[in-house]
Design a protein around this nucleic acid. Sequence first.
DNA 1: TCAGCCATCCAAAGCGGTTTGAAGCGATTC
DNA 2: GAATCGCTTCAAACCGCTTTGGATGGCTGA
Lengths: 342, 342
Amino acid sequence: MNLKELATRLGLSPTTVSRALNGYPEVNEATRERVVAAAKRHNYHPNTRAIRLATGRAMAVGHVIPIATRHEIVNPVFADFIAGAGETYSRNDYDMVLSVVPDDDEEKTYRGLKSKGNVDGVIVHAPRMKDPRIPLLREIGLPFVVHGRATGTAEPYCWLDVNNRRAFQRATEFLLDLGHVRIGLVNGLEFMDFAIRRRTGYVDALSARGIAPDPALMASGEMTEIAGFRSAQAMLALPDPATAILASSMISGMGVRRAVESAGLVVGRDVSIIIHDDDLSYMKNGEDVPIFTATRSSVREAGRLAAEMLLGVIAHPDSGPQQRLLEAELIIGQSTGPALKN
Amino acid sequence: MNLKELATRLGLSPTTVSRALNGYPEVNEATRERVVAAAKRHNYHPNTRAIRLATGRAMAVGHVIPIATRHEIVNPVFADFIAGAGETYSRNDYDMVLSVVPDDDEEKTYRGLKSKGNVDGVIVHAPRMKDPRIPLLREIGLPFVVHGRATGTAEPYCWLDVNNRRAFQRATEFLLDLGHVRIGLVNGLEFMDFAIRRRTGYVDALSARGIAPDPALMASGEMTEIAGFRSAQAMLALPDPATAILASSMISGMGVRRAVESAGLVVGRDVSIIIHDDDLSYMKNGEDVPIFTATRSSVREAGRLAAEMLLGVIAHPDSGPQQRLLEAELIIGQSTGPALKN
DNA sequence: TCAGCCATCCAAAGCGGTTTGAAGCGATTC
DNA sequence: GAATCGCTTCAAACCGCTTTGGATGGCTGA
């Protein structure tokens, strides 16, 4: 059943039927009701491909996922962000198209997306310092929103980010207030923008109390369990070991916890742990009482909001670059406690 | 730059240019080269929306992700599967479109995808027993491939699955051979088809050795760290406690490990653990030496293969239902050892 | 009464490709 | 020399919708 058939059946022109269904004013209310009823009765759904060609809009948003040789973006955090963004798209009748491409094809992919007209805009994931995708997208004129920020980019652009610096600053201050001095940081890879900001927050908090950051207490790597384990193990084995550790994710936090426990120490008593909790739906930080004390910010919610921002930018291309900074909450769990006097 | 402009510039008709670029035989080789060169020079890319309307194909594959109220499908395993499938689509110039919808809209979504012509086929995720999506998709005539199988579905359909029964049977036999008798199963939710099959394999292996399955040693729940922890904790607290535990994923296995360690026991000596390892890219089971003994099967590779199968079905709709069963390998890690005599 | 004005509807021209049917033309065949 | 054939190329229809630019006719107001 297509528009023409439906129109014939109703004894109307395709024009009128189209207008009736799309809510245009120049159609008699009685006619509209008749059309709407017939459309429902015959289970008519306009063909998306035709709409797209006729309107010149793709009604779709792209997410480009590089199959990285050096760093995996396909991680649990990404999945939850996508889920959140997808909710927004569904509600707005947009499609979400994911392009999984070898990372040296990334630029070609963005250019293709634009020139072939597959999408109306894209979300940029996991920005790095001076991320080249930002000038690229501006150059080719494809609307975009960055999830995170890219330090070192001069021109303004649309982004939505968590205040990572402030979150880690607060977490560090919290540990300092508990009397901890030897505080370790198990960070993500420090070419990622968020990791840089987190370290800044951590260092700032220490410096404000006159504590010089100790390189031995600052690790950086993939946010995996095993990496968390190893980094924490090293920090606990120091002559002057860490008594508290900040971990960059739930998963690396689990590695840190394993290191603490396998050193015969008790989490929350001998060693405090604070993680960053993305509030992943399948990886809750406890149910009622959080297991870990954490800086929490829902990445799924971030996905929803970033998608909304992008749809806004697509609808109003010259409304100027929008920006939004979300604050993480500091939630107190069972993994932190006062530093032991000795 | 569109086809007509390019044709005008070349002094040719759009027909010839289109054919030249699409490799049709009825065009002079010299002309074709001229056209191809001009297309590259002017950076011409045919408009996807126009191609889709003209050919009647969507050149896209759908993945419907229900925002489940009762069960989360958006999990790490799903993310890796998607990444694998996406690789295949990119190589074949197909788009991957994800629909994130409330779970009571799932049927409506599939029907819409078909009648609006957004996709040429779909992948069905996380099948349950007698999964209603299979008859639905058959009814509306939308090509599909199921990742997994749905026990209780009479008619044949396309699927790609891991031999879950055999994998868990072998794992159980391996533990039995090591002298374990009290073997626990920390399973996924048992309305999921894969979980049923795993339990069957486990029970079969025990029965073959004359061991009656003990309900106290069989848990079922979400595959989270905390659920794994709790189930294992209960099994270790029994009067006749488990000396070995099968866990359904890396994450629940981490919970099991924590339960073992926090009971003051040593993994691989006091208690053996075998997990199912989906070989997730960001959650490796060790680097050279696996941490866990595991039944391993790459879910990413499964994604690639399922996507290939679907593209095949789309290209040859009446080639009959294809089916493929992948075997998991049993890899020996550091989490298993002989049962202690006492 | 008649021009002017809404309210309502329609024909036709896109959107940018693919594909069908036919035509031009030099070479071959009879 | 005419008919035939193959190789190239093209004009036009088509995919299914949106949207522009009328057309129609009843109603209002002078």
